[in-house]
C-alpha cells in the first residue's frame, strides 16, 4: 500500500535527529579533542564511579519510596467510584503542569535552615532540623517530582484488573490478604515495571534537583555531564563518554526489568 510512504518524512527526521546524534555521542566518546580514536575518555569515566554509584543509589531509593508511597495510593484511587477516580487522578497529575524547577525551588523555601518547616518547628518549641543540602533532600526532590509517573501506570493497570478475577479468588477461599498478594499484586506487575522504569530513568539522570536541594556536595551523573558540556570542565568527549555509559547502564537496567515482566505485557517499552 501507498500508506507506507506517508511515514517517509518522519523516517528521514528520525535518521537525522535520533540516529545521527546518538552516533555522534558514540563517536565523541571514542575520540580525543583532535578527533583521533582513543579509549582515554572511557577510562576516565572510571574515576567517577563513585558519582555513578551515588546516582544509582539515590535513584533506587527514590524509586523504592515512590513505589511504597504510590502503590497504596493507586490502589485506593482504583477502588473509589468512577467519578471520584477521575478527579483524584487529575489531582495527581496537576502538579506536573507546574514548572518543575519552580516546584523544586518551593522545596528550598520549605526545607532551608530558616525555611517554613523550621519556622513551624520553632513555633511549636521544637529544635530546628538541618534538611537542605543533604542526600535526604535530594531523594525527597526526586520522589516529589517523579511520583506521578509511578502512580499513573499503577492506577491504569489496577483499574483494568477484572473484578470477577478477584471474586473468583475469594470464591476459591482466599482472604483479602491472600487475594492481594496472590492475585492483585502479580497482575499489576506490568504497571509496577513501567512505573519503576519511568521514575528510575529520570531520577538517575537528573541534574537540577541535586544542584538545588543537594548543595555542592552531592554531585550526580547529570551534573557531571552538564559540567563537561556547558560548565567549567568543558570536555565534550568525556561528557559523551559519560552519557554513553549512562545510556548503556539504563538500557541494561530496563532489559533486566523487562525480564520480570513474564507476560511481556509492557507495550511501547523498549524491546532492544
Amino acid at each position: 500500500m501507498k500508506a507506507k510512504s506517508a511515514s517517509f518524512p518522519y523516517l528521514v527526521w528520525m535518521a537525522v535527529f535520533i540516529i545521527v546524534p546518538t552516533a555522534l555521542v558514540v563517536i565523541f566518546a571514542f575520540t580525543d579533542r583532535s578527533g583521533k580514536f582513543t579509549l582515554m575518555n572511557l577510562e576516565e569515566v572510571g574515576q567517577y564511579s563513585n558519582v555513578f554509584l551515588r546516582s544509582i543509589w539515590l535513584g533506587a531509593i527514590a524509586t523504592a519510596v515512590c513505589l511504597i508511597l504510590g502503590y497504596p495510593l493507586a490502589y485506593l484511587i482504583a477502588k473509589t467510584r468512577a467519578r471520584q477516580q477521575n478527579v483524584l487522578i487529575l489531582l495527581v497529575m496537576l502538579p506536573m503542569w507546574m514548572n518543575f524547577l519552580l516546584r523544586t525551588y518551593a522545596w528550598m523555601t520549605l526545607l532551608e535552615d530558616s525555611g517554613l518547616i523550621n519556622r513551624a518547628l520553632e513555633g511549636l518549641g521544637l529544635p530546628a532540623m538541618h534538611m537542605i543540602n543533604t542526600q535526604g533532600a535530594v531523594v525527597l526532590g526526586m520522589v516529589y517530582n517523579y511520583i506521578p509517573y509511578m502512580i499513573l501506570p499503577l492506577y491504569s493497570i489496577l483499574t483494568k484488573i477484572d473484578g470477577s478475577v478477584i471474586e473468583a479468588a475469594e470464591d476459591l477461599g482466599a482472604n483479602a490478604r491472600t487475594v492481594f498478594f496472590r492475585v492483585t499484586m502479580p497482575m499489576s506487575m506490568p504497571g509496577i515495571i513501567s512505573g519503576v522504569t519511568m521514575v528510575f530513568v529520570p531520577a538517575v539522570s537528573t541534574f537540577i534537583i541535586s544542584k538545588m536541594l543537594g548543595g555542592g556536595g552531592n554531585l550526580l551523573v547529570g551534573d557531571l555531564i552538564d559540567m563537561q558540556f556547558l560548565g567549567s570542565a568543558y570536555n565534550p568527549n568525556l561528557g559523551s563518554a559519560i552519557s554513553l555509559v549512562l545510556m548503556v547502564l539504563i538500557l541494561i537496567c530496563m532489559g533486566i526489568m523487562n525480564q520480570f515482566d513474564e507476560n511481556g505485557a509492557m507495550e511501547g517499552g523498549v524491546m532492544v
Partner: peptide, 10 residues
C-alpha cells in the same frame, strides 16, 4: 527511553 540529558547533549 533515553534520559533527557542524553537526548539533550546528543
Amino acid at each position: 527511553v533515553n534520559p533527557d540529558i542524553v537526548t539533550g547533549v546528543s
